[in-house]
C-alpha cells in the first residue's frame, strides 16, 4: 500500500497501516458526527446528559429556531461579502503587480520588488495594533471596506503571480508587440487568459483565508450587525450557560459550517490542487 502500488497481497504491515488509517479517520469524523447528533437533541435533555445521541428524543426545533431568529444569516452574508470582495480585489491587484514585476521594466522596479519580497516576512500581528488605530482615525471600522482592505497589502498573491508570469514564454507577448498592440491590450487579450490556473489557486486561497479570518474582524467588526460568521459564532460560545442551549449552538455550528463544506466537496479537486500548488511554489 505504501509503495507497493497493488503489486503484492496485503501483508501484516499493510493491515496495521490500514487499521491506523481507519482509526485516524474515525478520530477526524467522530467529533463532527457527535456535533450533528447534538444539534438534533432537545436543549433541556442536553442540560442533563449528552450520552446516547443516537437514541430518541430527537428534535428539529434547534434548526427551526435558527431559521426563525438567528443572526447567523446576517453573519454569513457579511462573510460572503468580505470574502468575495477580498478575493476579487486581491486577484486584480496581484495579477497586475505580478505582471508588472515579471514582464515590464520601469525605473525603480528593483527597489520596489525587493521591498515587496521583504514584506513576505511581516506577520499580520506585527502591524495589527497601529493598523487598528489608523482605521479608527479614518472611521473605517465596522465597514466592509475596513474588513476587506488590510489583507490586500500582503504580498503573497503578488509573489505567486510573479512566479507564474515568469514561467509564461515571453515570445507570446513579443509576437503581439510586433503587431503594435498597446501594452494594456496585450495584458488583457493575450496574457490574462493564460493565467486562469494561477488565478484559481490564488482565488481559492484568498477566499478560504478571508472566510476563516479571526483576529482582524474580532477587533474591527465591533457592531453585531457587522460580525462575520467567525466572529458571530465566537461571540456566542464562550459561555454555554448564557446561551440558548448546547443543541442550539451546535445546530448553529452545523448550519454555519455547511455552505463551506458543500463548496469544498463541490470544488474539492480544484481546492486541493490550489492549496498544494500555492504553497509549493
Amino acid at each position: 500500500m505504501v509503495l507497493g502500488r497493488g503489486v503484492k497481497k496485503l501483508d501484516l504491515v499493510d493491515m496495521l497501516l490500514l487499521a491506523a488509517l481507519v482509526g485516524l479517520a474515525i478520530v477526524w469524523v467522530a467529533p463532527i458526527v457527535w456535533v450533528i447528533g447534538l444539534a438534533f437533541k432537545p436543549n433541556d435533555v442536553l442540560m442533563r446528559t449528552t450520552g446516547g445521541i443516537f437514541a430518541p428524543p430527537f428534535t428539529g426545533k434547534n434548526f427551526r429556531d435558527i431559521l426563525a431568529t438567528s443572526a447567523v444569516f446576517g453573519w454569513m452574508l457579511n462573510s460572503f461579502i468580505v470574502a468575495i470582495g477580498q478575493t476579487f480585489l486581491t486577484l486584480a491587484i496581484s495579477t497586475l503587480a505580478g505582471y508588472g514585476f515579471a514582464r515590464t521594466d520601469f525605473p525603480g522596479k528593483r527597489i520596489a520588488f525587493i521591498l515587496v519580497i521583504a514584506g513576505l516576512a511581516v506577520p499580520e500581528q506585527a502591524i495589527i495594533v497601529p493598523l487598528h488605530t489608523m482605521f479608527a482615525e479614518a472611521h473605517l471600522h465596522n465597514t466592509y471596506f475596513g474588513l476587506i482592505a488590510p489583507r490586500l497589502a500582503f504580498p503573497f498573491g503578488v509573489f505567486l503571480m510573479y512566479q507564474y508570469f515568469k514561467g509564461v514564454p515571453r515570445e507570446i507577448e513579443e509576437a503581439a508587440m510586433l503587431d503594435n498592440a498597446s501594452r494594456l491590450k496585450i495584458f488583457f487579450r493575450v496574457v490574462l487568459p493564460l493565467t486562469v490556473p494561477a488565478q484559481a489557486t490564488l482565488g481559492i486561497y484568498t477566499f478560504l483565508h478571508a472566510w476563516n479570518e479571526y483576529f482582524w474582524p474580532l477587533v474591527s467588526a465591533t457592531k453585531p450587525e457587522m460580525y462575520t460568521l467567525t466572529i458571530g459564532l465566537a461571540a456566542t460560545q464562550t459561555n454555554f450557560a448564557q446561551t440558548e442551549g448546547i443543541g442550539f449552538l451546535m445546530a448553529q455550528a452545523v448550519f454555519a459550517g455547511l455552505p463551506i463544506l458543500i463548496l469544498y466537496l463541490f470544488f474539492q479537486r480544484h481546492i486541493v490542487t490550489a492549496v498544494a500548488g500555492g504553497a509549493g511554489k
Binding site: 482605521f135 472611521h139 471600522h141 474591527s220 465591533t222 464562550t238 459561555n239
Partner: peptide, 21 residues
C-alpha cells in the same frame, strides 16, 4: 439590542469606543 456575553463585554465595549462605534 446589541448583545454581547458578559465575559468579554467590557473588552468589547472599549473596543467599540476605540472603533468610534
Amino acid at each position: 439590542p446589541q448583545i454581547i456575553e458578559w465575559g468579554p463585554y467590557y473588552q468589547q465595549l472599549t473596543a467599540r469606543i476605540a472603533a468610534r462605534d
